[in-house]
Design a protein around this nucleic acid. Structure first.
Lengths: 233, 233
DNA sequence: GGATGTGAAGTAGTTCACAGCC
DNA sequence: GGCTGTGAACTACTTCACATCC
């Protein structure tokens, strides 16, 4: 059990996948080290915060030389638990559900799609990404994690069904606050709320001092450079 | 200028749209008052936090009687700036882009869709929600806010194009950290990161004490009740 | 009586600044 | 020399608890 020592702060957990994405890009480009300043610039996070975040994974860097790309990637994976795969079902195979199922990143983060469901008879039986869409009214593949992409008015009913089916975490794309029993985690992705927040920032110059803001949860630092990840030099 | 007195804290801004959604549901059901405890239970937020948030809009409640539904809704709208509409363009009309354009909530929050663009010749010219998809290489309708739903590998290029076109805020659905100049706000909606966070919470019982967690940004309170919004009594 | 609005206290997260190690 | 890891200071947000007003 050389896994994460203590529980990580929420904002750290939200940033780890971003560091990981950058680290993986670094790996692809055969760069074997990265330092907190660079990582911070690319992720839109202060260097000290990067170090504090990564230090939470146990000592992972090398003083004077930054972080070893390979090790860092492995450590983040272990901390997030994405080194093992986890089963996910998708409820709702409209445009959104299909977009998610098709999305390349679905599997790269350890998620293992074990079922796609819908109630619409004209959709059930069709395929998406080579997977047959099944009837949500019928039996469900076992999974602890479900992604909900149904219309708002059906979201609560669907959530109830999922809870009965022993789902313990729901990623809800419906613009609908869900009521679930204690012990079930819900996370919301709400398009129009995100729009509203951005619009507010536009009108008020919030987020740093009017600067380009990274905002996957706690991230509020401007990314100044125009380039993304430089090619290996 | 009877608009918001001071700048609101980020987490408050993220919660206001949720309060607003509940308030609007309340309006629809002809309930003319709501109190911080009820609002908090439905939104998954502590009552004191609800009051602190709403107090930031200037005095809006009535001691002893809670908040007037109509007034509250208007105040939140004014604070968020959704009482005036704002123009938005959507870049990328794949499944995701189409899902967003179709989404009922698009317009309900003040957003005004003024253009949908793609580079794929087999998509350009087709319609989505009665709107013709135009060529992203061609001229763009003016808008300060853009929604980016292109593949990760095209996201930075598209963002550069948008910045040149004087877009000041980008809602990025591509799993790609964008580099933009200062003065441009970016907000990320990243499916696989959300999944990873949820999976982490599953494995670690984070978020309250393993309880059902509301998590549109700062929201970490369990919603215990099974019912959503009760029907008018 | 009852619920808001808010000082004061508490908590969490970020950033500084530098000791420690390569 | 350079960059990590971290105590200490700081900042931001949340929650308590109660005075205030309907």
């Amino acid at each position: 059990m050389a896994t994460p020592p203590r529980r990580l702060p929420e904002p750290t957990v939200a940033r780890l996948p971003i560091y990981q994405r950058i680290t993986q890009e670094w790996l692809r480009r055969d760069r074997d080290r990265i330092d907190s300043t660079t990582l911070g610039r690319l992720a839109g996070v202060a260097p000290a915060t990067v170090r504090r975040d990564l230090a939470g994974l146990g000592p992972v860097g090398t003083r004077g030389a930054g972080y070893d790309t390979e090790t860092l990637n492995a450590r983040i994976e272990a901390a997030l638990g994405t080194d093992e795969t986890y089963d996910v079902i998708v409820i709702g195979a409209g445009n959104l559900g299909r977009a998610l199922v098709n999305s390349a990143t679905f599997s790269t983060s350890g998620a293992n799609l074990v079922g796609v469901y819908d109630v619409n008879p004209s959709i059930v039986g069709t395929e998406v990404s080579g997977r047959v869409i099944e009837n949500f009214a019928g039996p469900l593949a076992p999974a602890l994690l479900a992604v909900l992409c149904v219309p708002a008015e059906n979201a609560q009913d669907a959530a109830d069904r999922l809870v009965d089916h022993d789902v313990h975490a729901i990623l809800n794309f419906a613009p609908q606050v869900l009521a679930v029993p204690l012990g079930v985690a819900v996370r919301y992705v709400d398009f129009s709320i995100e729009l509203q927040i951005l619009n507010y920032q536009l009108s008020n110059g919030t987020g740093s001092f009017g600067g380009g803001v990274l905002h996957t949860l706690g991230i509020t630092r401007p990314v100044t450079a125009r380039s993304t990840i430089p090619t290996a030099s």
